[in-house]
């Protein structure tokens, strides 16, 4: 796919907007919110990220990644107009059809906003399907917040509510959002659980402390959704590393409810 646009999101974090290089792929490519792909550079290898753009936005996909290993470093050196590989989509989806007429509460931390951004835009593009839409997004520091331009847009919209927070010490003098860890801020928000689904994406430690807060406010485990980010290679349930018990994150996930996670060994 051709890199149409590169956006610098945060230190070491970039978003690529990718266009299909051939018409048949563009016409036939279909994905749903929650799915992921293998992005590659010949000679360097493949790397797994979610599709961060909404399926309602046709003709392109976006991915957001942090420069870390061999492949992501090579990707980060690519410029607009260059070609990279993609295979996918893989994995299951967020069941948006089942969320009709419900309130949506999104809770994200750090670099885990991308998988959720796909669902948020998907929901915003079908705004009349859902009742209240609330997004709580936190990062370590102000610089680590991704999609800053969209956060401004979401903050200004009257049909959704955005709360941003940074970890204590991560604020800047002109920071207007909250200061505190995501679970703490969530606790202060005291979210209503009736007719609401919660979607949680973040580092394992954030997820671990967020679930109990949601439960405290009456969220049932089957109404809490998350995505697991286990290391993957093949994406089709063969290479053997993403399993949690007898479940393959690439095939049976990456989207799981908290109820499903409770029945799995804690290997994620």
């Amino acid at each position: 796919m051709r890199i149409e646009k590169v956006t610098e999101e945060a230190p070491g974090v970039k978003t690529f907007r990718l266009n299909f290089t051939n018409d048949s792929d563009r016409e036939h490519f279909v994905f749903r919110a929650g799915q992921f792909g293998e992005y590659s550079i010949f000679g360097e290898g493949e790397s797994t990220f979610c599709i961060a753009s909404s399926p309602t936005r046709k003709d392109y996909i976006e991915c957001t990644f942090r420069e870390a290993g061999r492949v992501t470093s090579a990707l980060a050196r690519k410029e607009e107009g260059e070609i990279i590989g993609f295979r996918g989509p893989y994995g299951n989806i967020f069941p948006l059809d089942g969320w009709k007429d419900k309130n949506l509460l999104f809770i994200a931390g750090g670099i885990a906003l991308p998988p959720m951004r796909c669902v948020i835009w998907n929901a915003l593009d079908m705004r009349d399907w859902f009742k209240d839409i609330t997004v709580l997004y936190g990062a370590r520091t102000v610089a680590d917040l991704v999609y800053k331009y969209e956060l401004d847009e979401w903050g200004n919209r009257s049909d959704m509510k955005l709360i941003t927070t940074v970890d204590p010490g991560g604020e800047t003098p002109d920071w207007k959002g909250k200061i505190g860890f995501v679970p703490t801020v969530l606790d202060q928000m005291a979210p209503a659980s009736s007719n609401t689904v919660a979607i949680v994406c973040g580092p394992p430690v954030m997820i671990k402390f967020t679930f109990p807060v949601l439960e405290k406010f009456g969220f049932k485990p089957e109404t809490i959704y998350t995505t697991l980010e286990n290391r993957m290679k093949c994406g089709v349930g063969k290479c053997g590393r993403c399993n949690v018990g007898s479940v393959y994150v690439c095939k049976d996930g990456p989207v799981f409810t908290y109820e499903q996670l409770q029945s799995l060994p804690p290997e994620y």
């Binding site: 010949f42 000679g43 493949e46 093949c234 063969k238 053997g240 590393r241």
Partner: peptide
């Protein structure tokens, strides 16, 4: 045992994508 890794071997001119045995 059937777990594997996928790695590229090559440069920016030519090369291969390889599937290699791996272990848990």
């Amino acid at each position: 045992c059937s777990c594997f890794d996928i790695q590229d071997e090559g440069n920016n001119k030519k090369g291969d994508r390889l599937r290699c045995w791996d272990s848990c």
